[in-house]
Computed example of a mutant assay.
Amino acid sequence: MKETGPLQNGNRILLADNLQALRELASESVELIYVDPPFNTGRVQSRPQLRTIRDEKGDRTGFGGRRYRTERVTGERAGTGYADQFDDFLGFLRPRMEEAYRILSPAGSLFFHIDYREVHYCKVMLDEIFSVEGGHRGRDCFQNEIIWAYDYGARAKKRWPAKHDNLLWYTKDPKRYTFNLDECDRIPYMAPGLVGEEKAARGKTPTDVWWHTIVSPTGKEKTGYATQKPLGILERIVKVHTNPGETVLDFFAGSGTAGEAAAKNGRHFLLIDASEDAVRVMKRRLAAYLPSKI
């Protein structure tokens, strides 16, 4: 297991096989685990990097009416990617999620991020894992299925386009867990005229359907990592389901969004990924929260 730097303020990035790394972590030592594993789509996941070049005949307009064209970056600076296909997806996930259950603190929460193709199989697996100890049924430890809905990208022509991901929220104890709803961001009412000016101005807390755009391929938040998730989604989870000073673990860490959400809000992070590309992205993104090179 290769660590990118010494422990500082509880923040670490590990370049490692996550199963091996998880087995070395202490039991009941982490308050929030967020995982965004491969979705088993059968495709190579990649997000190409784009650059803009001044061109009066270009395809987009910038500041002052100047025209630019976009080009796809190739070679070393191209976006990262990976093959998202498993012969035995649950066989791959199960030992890792069993370790996650062991590591989760008594009042801790697990957020498991997946899509419609595998969510039903994964929920049955997690129900079984969360039934292992404590006399609780896994189904009782299941708190919510949150739908993250977005509206971006191509439209299917032969079926309803899939524009959502699924987040399964489990707690180690079905009755004892952190849920700081007052810390949650507020969102606009869909029909503000029905609730009055005061409520409309204050907004409301979200339900189990979260409308949030994806990371824009040309936005400031982008890192170039293929499956980067929006910071707003992870900040909502971190602020509501942990307290300041607690630790957030993501062992499919990818671009490190969970780490940034934790650090920005006074939490510690432990990020694990087996990809050197992912670790390179995370080290650059989270440099302000990690030790300086000596």
Rank of each mutant, 00 (worst) to 15 (best):
K220A: 06
W211C: 13
I129F: 03
G81T: 01
K163C: 05
S131W: 08
E133V: 02
G81R: 01
K163Q: 14
G203H: 04
I146Y: 13
E198F: 00
Y189E: 04
M125E: 06
K220Y: 02
I129N: 05
K172M: 01
K199E: 12
Y116E: 15
E221P: 00
D182I: 03
R102C: 07
I147N: 00
G193K: 08
R202A: 15
I103M: 06
E98T: 12
L90I: 14
P161C: 00
A162E: 06
Y82C: 02
G203E: 08
S131P: 09
D140T: 13
R117K: 13
F92T: 10
L181E: 09
D151Y: 07
T207Q: 13
E145A: 07
D151T: 10
E98D: 05
I147Q: 05
W160A: 13
T207S: 15
A154V: 09
L194K: 15
D84W: 07
K175N: 05
K204Q: 15
N144T: 11
W210Q: 09
M97T: 00
V132Q: 14
D140R: 09
A191T: 09
I187R: 14
I129A: 01
D115C: 03
C184D: 04
I103T: 06
Y116P: 00
I103Q: 01
V132L: 13
A78E: 02
H113F: 15
S105W: 06
H212R: 11
R139Y: 03
K204P: 04
G153F: 10
D88G: 02
E128V: 03
K172A: 11
V119T: 08
G138S: 12
A100C: 14
Y177I: 01
T205F: 15
K220R: 09
R202G: 02
G108V: 02
R186C: 08
R77Y: 12
H120S: 07
K158N: 14
G135R: 11
R159E: 12
Y121N: 14
K157V: 10
S109G: 08
Y101D: 04
G108E: 00
R102N: 06
L167F: 07
Y82V: 03
G91A: 04
G193L: 01
K157N: 03
H212L: 14
I214C: 10
K163H: 12
C184V: 06
Y152A: 15
T205S: 11
E183G: 09
S109F: 09
G219S: 15
K157L: 08
E145F: 07
T213D: 15
G219W: 00
P217Q: 08
R137T: 09
R186S: 07
D87G: 13
D182K: 14
R139L: 05
R137D: 12
K204V: 14
A78Y: 03
H212W: 06
G135Q: 14
R117F: 02
E198C: 00
K157A: 11
F111N: 01
P217W: 00
V209A: 10
V132K: 15
F130K: 08
F142Y: 10
Q143I: 13
V132N: 04
T171A: 03
T218A: 05
F89K: 04
R139P: 00
L126V: 01
G81S: 11
H164Q: 07
L93M: 15
E99W: 02
I114K: 02
P188M: 12
F179Y: 08
N144I: 06
G135D: 09
K157W: 09
K204R: 15
R176E: 10
D127R: 00
A149L: 06
T171R: 05
S216H: 13
